[in-house]
Design a protein around this nucleic acid. Structure first.
Length: 705
RNA sequence: GGGCGCGUAGCUCAGCGGGAGAGCACUUCCUUGACAUGGAAGGGGUCACAGGUUCGAUCCCUGUCGCGCCCACCA
């Protein structure tokens, strides 16, 4: 006899362990079946399961289980990302607690430290995914830094280098002064902030008492000014073009130039040009052959190119000092409040990034993007919902070279060596590089690759590439990619590019972009706001199935969903309803009848429920095929409550209590069949409950004889 | 400045050419007969606004207003 309620906790864990032990999730068990594959968006090795992961993996798991149930040979490929910056920060923080530092211990020891951390504390998330019920093939779990994937990274780098697509360039990059590394354009988060517009007067050289006024949000960069630009048609300044201004504080002569970049409507119409610290100004400088002055050290303090008084000052301290000094010599005209977008680091959103002149490695992605665009244009890869197609196209069609080098230690070290003359040798191994160099002493480039470089290869590197493995042959291209819109550029686009460059076909046929999860009030969850809903708490309280079902039900076509305990509670109640329907069946002797043929039932209610069950089965299948998770879940919900319980079981009661034994038998068999059928259909969304009955029912074992 | 999404019951949202729906909340009733983590009955909506297409529009088109997000180098 079943309890009145379903207690998921312990049962779920046990069921999962049995599945895993029995190899139920293994790919390749059905060599004759049609393959179906999904690669997981690899969570960070530092990661803990958050509600977004829960959604993402619930949907993937639903598909994996659905297709497995339909007889396909399913590979759900799991793995983790080494997450360069995040992981390095975690370990550095721990070292700091022990009064140690990365720089102090040196690269090699530091990396040992990171690996140790990874092996001991990393990857907690894979256990948490198991708790959710994720039926990934864990026997094939990969890590972006493991041997095989690292080999793929080296090979890709070397090939792209040989093809002339990877090159070193000195230009402005987005620089993070705290981490002291370059970051890519995508890793910049522009945040609207209140700031000021300072109006500065630059004296005109040789015309005492005359000034040209510029407006700037960044007065400290004036020490790096190379010119003042005005619009060529701006009557106000026409006579000044070709003249010189005297840069205050620095006492340098800088030219007044004409450039279309100057907008007469903005500021004063005259704009200071700082090629070393502004992307626009860099372009202007290039057009006019202006010198590029870098006034900052890597940590954001002012360097030795500036007047002595400012050297070593932090950029924000320097700003105050410079403003004060300009005011003192009456060259500050006024200050206006302004709100403007300030570039920040995307991880902590607390560090203001600097455009900085450095030498970095770039990947010219243009030719790869062309293929990636074509593939979507041709429909070889489709976005669902398809409005994301335009987002993808827009970015791909305006793509810029990808800055792939990072000044970190944790990551794939760039496979480039230099001889004493700085000549470059790019090879997969040091020995090869040495051979190329004719045995000269070499030093390796210290930089590592952007984390996304290795994840861009994920769709084929996890399958064994560069080796031509059977898995690669069988499971590539993958069937569907399930991910959130926040990483379309970071990851989806780059996988498209890299895959199409190194593989004969697209990495996946369908990209399903799911909604974003917000808290119950519709606010983005964040640790600092303290509104994070922990999926593990929800699982503990309501069961994994209830959470999964809630997420599936909320995975509509909109942009985001709101999730909180109250919504999960509703579906815990649904689980209880299922449980009690089964309990009712059991109490009335409804048992699965071998060889039961639903088309042969004779009583009207039974004929009706058979038809309803079949219709629901059909609907669930159609909806899951169409990736309409919410509609699939909704159909199941409606069937259980409104059809099976409210009507059918109610109608069955008098039959069970009556004396017509034949009717009873048929109804019992039909009730059991309908229940079994719907449980089976529910399996992709709620894998645990249908499995739980047997265990819960089992009475304490007497001795087997 | 471009692009996208959203505006439907008090709240959260689904539906998207022909019946206006779900969950929660609310009202009334029901503790012995699967389930109070439940059941029965019920109240509540000019489907943002204005035009248009159509025999017919919440659903399609145009515009307006409001909210949110993404992209963009603007002082």
């Amino acid at each position: 006899m079943l309890d009145k309620t379903f207690n998921p906790g312990e049962v779920e864990t046990r069921i999962y362990a049995e599945w895993e032990r029995s190899g139920a999730f293994r790919a390749g068990r059905r060599p004759d079946a049609e393959p179906f594959s999904i690669v997981i968006p690899p969570p960070n090795v530092t990661g803990r399961l958050h509600i977004g992961h829960a959604l993402n993996n619930t949907l993937q798991d639903a598909l994996a289980r659905f297709e497995r149930m339909r007889g396909k040979d399913v590979l759900w490929q799991p793995g983790m990302d080494h997450a360069g910056i995040a992981t390095q920060l975690v370990v550095e923080r721990q070292l700091a607690e022990k009064q140690q530092s990365r720089v102090g211990m040196g690269r090699e020891k530091f990396l040992e430290e990171v690996w140790r951390w990874k092996n001991e504390s990393g990857g907690a998330i894979t256990q948490q995914l198991r708790r959710l019920g994720a039926s990934a093939d864990w026997s094939r779990e990969r890590f972006t830094m493991d041997e095989g994937l690292s080999r793929a990274v080296l090979k890709v780098f070397v090939e792209l280098y040989k093809q002339g697509l990877i090159y070193k360039d000195k230009r402005l990059v987005n620089w993070d002064p705290r981490l002291q590394t370059a970051v890519s354009d995508l890793e910049v988060e522009n945040i609207e902030m209140k700031g000021h517009l300072w109006y500065l007067k630059y004296p005109i050289d040789g015309q005492a008492g005359r000034f040209i006024m510029v407006a700037t949000t960044r007065p400290e960069t004036m020490l790096g000014d190379a010119a003042v630009a005005v619009h060529p048609d701006d009557e106000r300044y026409k006579d000044l073009i070709g003249k010189f201004a005297v840069l205050p504080l620095a006492n340098r002569r800088i030219p007044i130039i004409a450039d279309e970049h100057s907008d007469p409507e903005k500021g004063t119409g005259a704009v200071k040009i700082t090629p070393g610290h502004d992307f626009n100004d860099f372009e202007v400088g290039r057009r006019h052959n202006l010198p590029v002055l870098n006034i900052l050290n890597k940590d954001g303090t002012l360097n030795d190119t500036v007047p002595e008084a400012y050297r070593g000052l932090d950029r924000f301290v320097a700003r105050k000092t410079i403003v004060a000094d300009l005011e003192a010599v009456e060259l500050l005209d006024r200050i206006e409040p302004i709100t403007h977008a300030v570039p920040h680091d995307e991880k902590t959103k607390t560090v203001v990034l600097e455009p900085m002149m450095t030498e970095q490695w770039y990947l010219n992605v243009q030719p790869l993007a062309d293929r990636a665009i074509k593939a979507v244009e041709d429909g070889r890869t489709k976005f669902v919902p398809d409005n994301w197609t335009n987002v993808y196209f827009h970015w791909m069609r305006n793509i810029q070279p990808w800055c792939i080098s990072r000044q970190l230690w944790w990551g794939h070290q760039i496979p480039v060596w230099y001889d004493a003359d700085g000549k470059i040798y790019c090879a997969e191994t040091e020995d090869e590089a040495k051979a190329q160099a004719g045995g000269k002493a070499l030093t390796r480039d210290p930089d590592v690759l952007d984390t996304w470089f290795s994840s861009a290869l994920w769709a084929f590197s996890t399958l064994g590439w560069p080796d031509q493995t059977p898995e690669l042959k069988r499971f590539y291209p993958t069937s569907v990619l399930v991910t959130g819109f926040d990483i379309i550029f970071f990851w989806v686009a780059r996988m498209m590019m890299m895959s199409l460059w190194f593989m004969p076909d697209v990495p996946f046929h369908t990209v399903f972009i799911h909604t974003r999860v917000l808290d119950e009030k519709g606010v983005k969850m964040s640790k600092t706001k303290g509104n994070v809903v922990d999926p593990l708490d929800l699982i503990d309280e309501y069961g994994a199935d209830a959470l999964r079902f809630t997420l599936a039900l909320a995975a509509g076509q909109g942009r985001d969903m709101r999730i909180g305990p109250s919504r999960v509670e509703v579906n815990r109640n649904f689980a209880t309803k299922l449980w009690n329907a089964t309990r009712f069946c059991e109490m009335n002797g409804c048992q699965t009848v071998e060889g039961f043929d639903p088309s042969k039932v004779t009583l009207t209610p039974n004929q009706w429920i058979v038809a309803e069950t079949a219709a629901t089965a059909q609907e669930l299948t159609t909806k899951l095929e169409a990736l309409r998770f919410n509609e699939a879940a909704g159909a199941a919900y409606h069937f259980i409550y409104d059809v099976y319980c409210d009507w059918y079981l109610e109608i069955a009661k008098p039959i069970f209590n009556g004396s017509d034994e034949k009717a009873k038998a048929e109804t019992r068999a039909t009730a059991a069949w309908a229940r079994d059928t719907i449980f089976q259909l529910l399996h992709p969304l709620m894998p645990f409950i249908p499995k739980s009955f047997g265990r819960a029912r089992r009475s304490p074992r007497v001795r087997p004889c």
